[in-house]
Design a protein around this nucleic acid. Structure first.
Length: 563
RNA sequence: UGGGCCGUCGACUAAUGGUAGGUCAAGUGCCUUUGGAGCACUUUGUCUAGGUUCGAAUCCUAGCGGCCCAGCCA
């Protein structure tokens, strides 16, 4: 397993360190991770989770998991359960588990307090009228005609909003701040709206629900959150966040914004990810091509790899896009240390060793993990007829090709040196069999005479091979930025038509027949693979997590491009 | 001629007025029973123009460029 990378310095840690040093809140550090349960967590959330939990942990603090469930129309228990599972899978355990809906009573009392102080009012304007009164980015807004109602009338109306007398959209409660503010969030923001909707936790107790802005800061405050991290787009909300806390005179949580994590060849928009799921462009939220934590888990990514990646990517306020290659590096780095090596042939080509006895079977010793001696060894059956990878034989080898070709000797990993002698072709002229001879003195792959061979290739005995389905994934989108589209197109135009390749009859070594769902292996020379839940007894299904770095592919590509 | 945030190698990120460093990517070499892994080395950067200062990536001003904001979403 990869060592946890030391976290590089960042501005949020600096802020917290300073606060601790100057004994703000007695040096106490309390954070929270506040997802809305309206979708599955993705790698962008992993960054927030690592920050919220990681920084609190560094300073001996605590972290709450709080569901920001103020919009019953979009939320569901399915999502809260998946979020809990994903946070734990990532390796974190919350101290307190809360819901914004836990605070609905308190929030309601605070709204009344603001009404009594003349700082909030019930507005009868329609949504459309409110929008028109708000003004524009460059022009100030206009005050609502209902802005100066009496406290008594506001109290009366707000109470009747709560008891369900009015239909959805007919009235809202607004904070009385400043319709001319250059910050649109301060132009009398809506605090409560009427929503006759059943909430996944409070049922039908409420028909008015607080807006994010009237819930988040106070929730932080109630939990005595000292450092409230959120993404950059909320920076404009900070004055409002502070305004409510100040007006209410409650615990002064501090909001700190950081940049979202963006990755090339994918996207983090929950709305768009949901669309992919609903339109069947992927198989579900946990499709291995999705940037969701459940998708990555199914694909074989490890929590350690994701955490190391997120840490290495760092945190700032710059709106960057991290290359997918960086994520893949951390996945390989971790899997290299923990994955057991096995041999599997994806595109089989028969090799017949003409001078090897017809019915002989030898059990060859193979190392399970060269990075970890404690992983031990296993026996792999060897016989006269084998499968090798089609790519590992060329009748007419290009320059720089080291693998099997007529007259050339290569090593079969943990087997023997073999030399290709002749080929058998089908009607279409394709090579379907390669006839070879082997050198009995090279058993196990060692040449007693010190003879060197330029290549070692993997193989599976035909008589012992087990069939398996292997799914090869490419990026879900073919553009680094999927949102870069032509006129009249949307991001689905950039979906990669080749993002999934199914190999129905790969040949795997017999030790793999009993592989457990979720277990991860390195198929030697090919990549890392994970046993998919779609596996059935007798037919394992593997997902390729990530390919190994392929130097030959790079050389070949370069030669092809230059000639 | 609204407000806010932000510009450092190809990507991400450090340097807190004093040596522009790290990771990924790319390249070169070594090694190798995975063309894997590993090891060593190398290339490329402070948006521009002024200013302050003994000294500026850092502070100031202007310009240029990017992102966010006009939900009764979060």
């Amino acid at each position: 397993m990869a060592e946890p990378s030391p976290a590089p310095p960042n501005f949020i840690r600096d802020i917290i360190a300073e606060d601790v040093k100057s004994s703000q809140h007695g040096g106490r550090v309390q954070t929270r991770f506040p997802p809305e349960p309206n979708g599955y967590l993705h790698i962008g959330h992993a960054k927030a989770i690592c920050l919220d939990f990681g920084l609190a942990d560094e300073f001996g603090g605590h972290t709450n998991l709080r569901f920001d469930d103020t919009n019953p129309e979009k939320e569901d228990v399915e999502y809260v359960e998946s979020i809990k599972a994903d946070v734990q899978w990532l390796g974190f355990q919350w101290d307190g588990l809360f819901y914004a809906s836990d605070y609905f009573d308190q929030l309601y009392e605070w709204a009344i307090k603001l009404i009594k102080e003349g700082k909030a009012y019930v507005d009868d304007l329609s949504a459309e009228e409110i929008r028109q009164h708000r003004g524009t980015l460059t022009q100030p807004g206009k005050e609502s005609p209902y802005r100066n109602r009496s406290v008594e009338e506001n109290l009366n109306l707000f109470e009747r909003m709560r008891t369900g007398e009015f239909p959805d959209g007919s009235r809202v409660l607004r904070a009385k701040i400043d319709m001319a503010s250059p910050n649109l969030n301060m132009r009398d923001p809506v605090m409560y709206r009427i929503l006759h909707a059943e909430h996944h936790r409070t049922g039908n107790k409420w028909c008015i629900y607080p807006m994010y802005d009237f819930a988040h800061g106070q929730s932080d405050s109630l939990e005595k959150i000292t450092h409230s991290m959120c993404t950059l787009e909320f920076a404009d909300h900070q004055p409002l966040y502070n305004w409510f806390i100040e007006q209410l005179g409650i615990f002064p949580s501090r909001q700190i914004e950081f940049d979202r994590l963006s990755l090339t060849y994918t996207m983090m928009s929950k709305r768009k990810l949901r669309l992919l799921v609903e339109e069947g462009r992927v198989k579900g939220w946990d499709d291995p091509r999705m940037p969701t934590l459940s998708g990555m888990r199914r694909r074989g990514y490890t929590p350690e790899a994701i955490r190391n990646f997120v840490t290495a990517a760092g945190v700032s306020r710059t709106n960057g896009i991290v290359e997918l290659a960086m994520l893949e590096h951390f996945v390989r780095e971790d899997l290299n240390k923990r994955a057991l090596r096995v041999m599997a042939v994806l595109k089989p080509l028969k090799v017949i060793i003409d001078n090897y006895p017809e019915n002989k079977v030898e059990e060859m010793d193979a190392v399970n993990n060269p990075e970890d001696a404690s992983a031990g060894t296993r026996k792999v059956p060897f016989s006269r007829v084998l499968y090798i990878e089609q790519d590992d034989f060329r009748e007419d080898p290009p320059k720089g090709y080291f693998r099997l070709s007529p007259g050339r000797e290569v090593r079969l990993r943990y087997g023997y040196f073999i030399t290709a002698k002749s080929v058998v072709k089908n009607d279409r002229g394709e090579v379907v069999e390669v006839h070879c001879t082997y050198d009995p003195a090279t058993r196990g792959g060692n040449a007693p005479d010190g003879r060197k061979v330029k290549s070692t290739i993997h193989w599976v005995s035909v008589a012992h091979a087990v069939d398996a389905e292997v799914r090869i994934y490419e990026t879900l989108f073919s553009k680094e930025n999927p949102d870069e589209v032509g006129p009249g197109q949307d991001f689905t135009a950039n979906l990669n038509p080749n993002s999934l390749e199914v190999i129905a009859n790969a040949k795997i070594e017999p030790s793999l027949a009993k592989a457990a769902v979720g277990s991860r292996y390195q198929f030697e020379r090919l990549g890392y693979f994970c046993v998919d839940p779609d596996s059935k007894p007798g037919k394992a299904v593997f997902s390729r997590t990530v390919a190994l770095k392929d130097t030959w592919a790079k050389v070949e590509k370069k030669q092809g491009g230059s000639s």
